[in-house]
Design a protein around this nucleic acid. Sequence first.
DNA 1: GAGACGTGGTG
DNA 2: TCACCAAGTCT
Length: 294
Amino acid sequence: MKRAVLISALHKKILRWYRQNGRELPWRKTSDPYRILLSEIMAQQTQVSRVEIFYTKWLAKFPTLQSAARAKTREILLQWSGLGYNSRALRLHALAKFVVKNYRSRLPHSVEELQKLPGIGAYTSHAVACFAFRQQLPVVDVNIKRILLRIFGYTTRLTDKEIWKLAEEILPSGKAYHWNQALMDFGAVICTARNPKCAICPVQKECASAFSPMFNVPEKRKKKEPSRKGIPRRLYRGKILKMLHYTVLTEKEIAEQLWHSFSSRDVLWLHNLLHQMIADGLLKRLRGKLGIAE
DNA sequence: GAGACGTGGTG
DNA sequence: TCACCAAGTCT
């Protein structure tokens, strides 16, 4: 099949699938760049079904970029609590303050300017430029990457640059918004990471990997993450942050809440962890105790 | 560029 | 059960 014919078929079939099966998501009904940005930040490494809940709660508390900019760090972290990757909340807070102060509360439109803002990388900058400002740009997230690699049958590793180039090449003229949204839904529902639904896939005939037994083989074995007493370090960070939402504690008091018994080496380990959380802007020291950052 | 970063769902 | 996975970014 000629490439142009293949791409045309993909456009037609995937866009039709999307019209019939696309998810109804709150940020697809708004043109407010702040709301669209919020949804994209929240969706980073987070399932959309969980984002919806936090998105609604957040907007009830911080309906505008200005209101988020004015908020205390404690309120920001409290609203984010439970969603994960708490640094995203801090970066969004910093972004809001910066844009209110330097850009008259208006988000920049260009990918280049967006990407200078905290918490916005390649994916989010393109997503905001396309979804909020309707620019004809490709978007590459984990879904779209997976779909493209499968359909075009790439077995060798592609660099990020090559994937983005491919995404740009197949962008249907004038339909970037719906195409990008369609691909992400398609990846979440049909072309899933494990057990993709090839049997009901609308582009089964166009796909180089349909029914491939190579699915379900993890790409790379993840190296074990740092942990203490069998509990990953990042879980400690989450627990500690929640502990300190409404109070301040000494390092010893934190240790007592974490562990039934602990050694001096455990205390040193905890001290270093807290030091890192302070460096990350999550916590601060006050009168010998730890609390949420200002 | 590999590793760190939260939390909850899933096969 | 438990390792993988989820609209990535930063260092």
